[in-house]
Amino acid sequence: MIETIKIWDEELFLFLNSFHFDWLDPVMYAMTKTLVWVPLYAFLVYIIIKKLGQSSIWIFIGIFLAILISDQTTSGFMKPFFERPRPCHDPRWEGIMFNYKRCGGMFGFASSHASNTFALATYLWLTFKRKVPGFGWMFLWAAIVSYTRLYLGVHYPADLIVGAIVGLLAGWFSWWLVIKIKMTAIRKVEKMDE
């Protein structure tokens, strides 16, 4: 069964990776870099501080936790454990697949780009769904960033899907944990005031 899924994953990768355009290659490459998203991150920081003021520290703690958990799960545990080579490191695809500029580390399962962006999207959506309508667009952003990895030939679809799931879980867990910690802190302050 796992072997069949792996074959389907590779076939889907080769099919989707075959759709590329010379003019789009540098755009997709730029979109996979952190620097291009600095204005978005600055905008998010502005919204968070504007909506929550001093209590925004809890949001930044949650974001840090979500990304730390997602990144360490994929990069620190999954990639060295599963040791699945990136498609651009697999000699079977030489001359068949498209890879732009660079390949990255040897192993790609699961995608840290997918896990980190989906962790951020999930955490912010859960935190702001009642306060700031429309935060669901972050999931589209996470999907686009994730897709750039397939387009550039550095991840299989399963790498992205599993990475996204890890990110969703990390974002949810961080959101839940920050609420618990915050409630505990509030209770302690209230007891001290009594």
Rank of each mutant, 00 (worst) to 15 (best):
G108T: 02
K33E: 15
P85G: 09
F43I: 07
G134H: 12
I144T: 11
Y156A: 14
Y41T: 01
V38W: 10
K131G: 02
E190W: 05
V145H: 11
F118D: 03
G136M: 01
I96A: 13
S174E: 05
G163K: 03
R86A: 03
F13E: 10
A142Q: 00
L12S: 11
I2D: 13
L14W: 03
W175A: 01
T122R: 02
D9K: 09
F107M: 05
M97T: 00
Y151W: 07
H155A: 04
M1F: 13
C103K: 06
F13K: 08
W176N: 11
E194G: 15
F64W: 07
E10I: 11
L40P: 00
F107L: 05
Y151V: 13
V166M: 11
G136I: 10
H20L: 12
P39S: 12
G136C: 02
L126V: 12
D22F: 08
W93V: 00
F109G: 00
W175L: 05
F98D: 08
H89S: 09
A143N: 12
I59M: 01
I179N: 01
I186V: 15
T74R: 06
F43G: 15
F135C: 04
T122D: 04
D25S: 10
S112T: 08
I59P: 01
F118Q: 06
P85K: 12
I144C: 03
F109W: 01
K101L: 11
P39W: 14
L12G: 06
I47L: 14
I144M: 06
P85N: 14
I59H: 03
K51G: 02
M183Q: 14
I57Y: 13
I57P: 00
W8D: 14
G62P: 05
G134D: 13
G95L: 09
Q72H: 12
Y123A: 04
L152G: 04
Y147E: 04
N17C: 03
Y151S: 06
A143W: 09
S75Y: 03
S18N: 08
L35G: 09
I2M: 13
Q72N: 12
A185Y: 09
V189G: 00
T34M: 12
F43V: 08
E83S: 09
D193T: 13
T184P: 01
W8Q: 15
M28N: 09
W37M: 04
D9G: 08
G104E: 02
I57R: 11
R149H: 08
T117E: 03
D22T: 11
I63W: 09
V178G: 10
F128T: 09
K51P: 05
V132P: 04
I49C: 13
I67C: 07
Q72T: 06
D71K: 02
V132A: 07
A30H: 14
S70D: 02
N116K: 02
F135A: 04
A110F: 14
I63H: 07
W23D: 04
D22P: 03
L52A: 07
F13H: 07
G153C: 11
K50N: 15
E10L: 06
G108Y: 11
I165A: 01
H89F: 14
I7E: 10
K79F: 02
I165K: 00
H113L: 05
Y41K: 14
S174T: 11
S70Q: 01
F15Y: 14
P87G: 05
M183C: 15
I165T: 09
C103S: 06
I69G: 02
F60L: 15
D159K: 04
F81L: 13
L140C: 01
G167P: 07
I48D: 09
N17L: 06
